[in-house]
Write a protein that binds this DNA or RNA. Structure first.
Lengths: 328, 328
DNA sequence: ATGAAAGCGCTAACAT
DNA sequence: ATGTTAGCGCTTTCAT
């Protein structure tokens, strides 16, 4: 920057001004400076800028997700990245593997990096560390999972309605013994989805059978294991409603290993669609969250909030759509 | 930091010293400072540190990947993240979607962020922008794809041998008309995999049939489309060797849409395994790249290189293992 | 319209 | 063993 100033015969202050195309700068000197910048291939240091101007212009965002292996989150990430890139924001990726300790450490790092804002799917609704950061003024928008009693935007889907639609569909198709493999109860969406499952049953005068409900830890392995328990029992279900992407895939592994026919011997609907649902055999019926859109909206909300920190909080609930294909 | 110094009754220099646990600091004052840090919940600014000490200790890494939707890259990313996290490095994620312009802009950002090092799967082997950064002294390790005439470490698999093994297996199983759906010829691994495919055919006295080789753009859609062209032709193949994860999934969609039986009517082996290969029906036979391991090794090499910039370059070629399951 | 200078939070000589 | 101080590259008053 010094060199640019020298070459253009001005002070660094003026260079800074044209860089932030702010205030009044003589068109002539502006051109001179621009030329010098080109010639020297000068690139401003985002680090120095960040250090200087405490907030709102450091062009750095944090993204905190529980499991990047879950295709849902990679699509959300893609949505975020799309708007971040367009707005010249870089992204620090924090994958905490649903480990609260790791999450806390990442939050420390993010704070220490002086990010402008954060998009997070927190481990729980009661995340103290995160709530404190919000209170301290960090712009945060949550995706997929909210943050109780905190001033944050939230973009998610109607989990309960989505689950309800899936189970309702199963019932109307004539399935009687519909099992549910859920995720960690500490994750809000797990609870909501189970609730939708129960409501649908009850609305059809079916008493939820505790033996048909298994809660795991939201992983692929839990899907494999719990589906196996369910399907090998004396009174196995005739349909499965699985609580997320990874669980669905795990359950599918078990179903195929047991050589069960879908949907004749066992129907299955998963929460979370996958872009390659048609590559499964049979094509998977699933509750689709508009993941890319969720990420995109979250990104937009965050950028808004950064420039206007006191705008009231918004909760965007998107529709979870049942994509009926062949697995039920 | 100022406050910590005040509270502990020392100068900020001493605080800095215990923070970097360097040099000789009186144990007594050390304890005092540590106590003050605890009490004030002081967290050092990584930004200021980065600004100050030009290189090697900013604790920031860049990761540049072509397509985060490809499960292979997310596993690589997990491997990188694993070692980065352990070493207190944050990661700036750059997903360039095989778009060279976007890649160049991300490289600009990374440079401007003063990263300590970069792990990249560059768009092409001839990436000028990246080569310049290497020349300028940025520690870089490449994954999956190399960088011609440049001083970088490289971690990848033996693509040609992996492809060869897959096609060889197909031939031994008795398949006669083995088609190949490849990826972008500008990507080195695409070329290498096609080469392996051809070698295997030739070694078995089969003349590669140009009509059975289709090159796309490495996407899911290309898999759908090219598989459709191949399978609907007058003289369709009896086996498919697909060039990457996404292509495989796309081809699978077409196969199922056409209600072709695997492997009786059409066998398929994909390059790139997936953690849920068993969830496909039938379970997919695939050439497995140890993706997590690749990421981990790359991360380790990068950290080494950061602390010792002149250590000679290493090329780590891992084995691509044929995972025989039921699709051929 | 432009320049001078202070300072963001830290590290690394150099002094003591 | 510890303190003083000069920057790192930028933004932003305050002068001019």
């Amino acid at each position: 920057m010094n060199e640019v100033a020298k070459r253009a015969g001005v002070s660094i202050a003026t260079v800074s001004r044209v860089l932030n195309n702010s205030e009044s700068v003589n068109e002539e000197t502006r051109l001179k400076i621009l030329k010098a910048i080109k010639e020297l291939k000068y690139q401003p240091s985002r680090v120095a800028k960040r250090l200087r101007s405490k907030s709102g212009s450091s062009n750095l965002l944090g993204v905190l997700v529980p499991d990047i292996r879950n295709p849902f989150y990679v699509d959300v990430l893609m949505g975020i990245e799309d708007v971040a890139y367009r707005n010249n924001y870089a992204i620090i990726m924090c994958n905490f593997g649903q480990d609260e300790k790791k999450e806390a450490m990442y939050l420390d790092i993010l704070e220490s990096e002086a990010i402008d804002g954060l998009i997070a799917a927190p481990a729980t609704e009661y995340d103290q560390r995160l709530k404190k950061m919000v209170k301290n003024g960090l712009p945060v928008v949550c995706v997929d999972r909210g943050l109780k009693d905190s001033d944050v935007d939230l973009v998610w889907v109607n989990n309960e309605a989505g689950a309800y639609a899936a189970v309702d569909h199963l019932i109307r198709k004539g399935y009687k013994r519909i099992a549910h493999i859920g995720g960690l109860p500490s994750i809000p969406s797990s609870v909501l989805r189970e609730k939708g499952y129960r409501s649908a049953l009850i609305d059809h005068q079916i008493l939820p059978d505790p033996g048909l409900i298994r809660l795991g830890d939201s992983t692929y392995e839990s899907g494999v294991r719990l589906a196996s328990e369910l399907l090998k029992s004396k009174t196995p279900p005739d349909a499965l409603f699985t609580g997320n992407n990874l669980i669905t895939l795990g359950a599918l592994e078990t179903i195929h290993a047991l050589k069960l026919k879908i949907p004749e011997e066992i129907a299955i609907i998963g929460f979370d669609d996958m872009s390659w649902a048609n590559s499964l055999n049979p094509a998977l019926t699933a509750v689709r969250q508009p993941a890319f859109e969720i990420g995109k909206r979250a990104g937009e909300l965050l950028i808004q909030r950064i420039s206007d920190p006191k705008r009231p909080c918004i909760q965007m609930t998107m529709n979870a759509e049942l994509m009926i294909r062949s697995s039920c």
